[in-house]
């Protein structure tokens, strides 16, 4: 394993050069080392789980209610009776799974501006095309591929 690691890093770097955030589909193991994994938008959504990961709804709920990490409740409200002070800049997350497919939810989290450039929602998994990003955040997406899949898995449970 040790001897393979440098080669994998090289391949990852190569993949980083070759892939742009929009357009290429193949994710696989290499993508796990990239800050932003490649994905393909089709029919208004992203059908393939980012990096081929299986999300965990429990972890997703924690992210959604974490005001420093997921940030969701700053703008959205939802079925979280224990959470005070939920925002009202965006639609409630209650019943989102009955309104949107997992594919469409995934794209909205990854990059809502791909659907509407004027969208207020931050692009959670895009690092290109951002302006004056603070040094601590530069080159990093708001959520990693794995975290996005966790949130997608959790939001998929909000049917009512």
């Amino acid at each position: 394993m040790r001897r393979i690691a440098p080669l994998r890093r090289m391949l990852s770097a190569f993949a980083g050069l070759m892939m742009t955030s929009i357009g290429l589909g193949a994710a696989g193991a290499l993508a796990q080392d990239l800050p932003v994994v490649p994905y393909r938008i089709e029919s208004g959504g992203i059908s393939a789980p980012l990096g081929g990961r299986q999300g965990d709804a429990g972890r997703g709920r924690k992210l959604v209610t974490d005001r420093r990490k997921g940030l969701c409740l700053l703008c959205h409200s939802g079925p979280f009776p224990e959470e005070r002070f939920q925002g009202d800049l965006a639609p409630s997350l209650a019943g989102i799974a009955s309104r949107l497919t997992a594919e469409k939810i995934r794209l909205r989290i990854v990059d809502s501006t791909a659907i509407n450039p004027a969208s207020l929602m931050p692009p959670y998994h895009r690092i290109e095309g951002l302006v004056e990003v603070g040094a601590a955040w530069r080159g990093k997406p708001i959520l990693t591929a794995g975290e996005i899949e966790d949130v997608v898995a959790f939001l998929g449970t909000l049917r009512d």
């Binding site: 703008c75 800049l89 501006t113 692009p123 951002l130 708001i142």
Partner: peptide, 23 residues
Amino acid sequence: RVGQLNLSCAQCHDDNWGRKLGS
């Protein structure tokens, strides 16, 4: 629009004043 959260001043203070950002 600036920053990792990709928001302009106007998006909050022109477009959404009076609404709740968290508390």
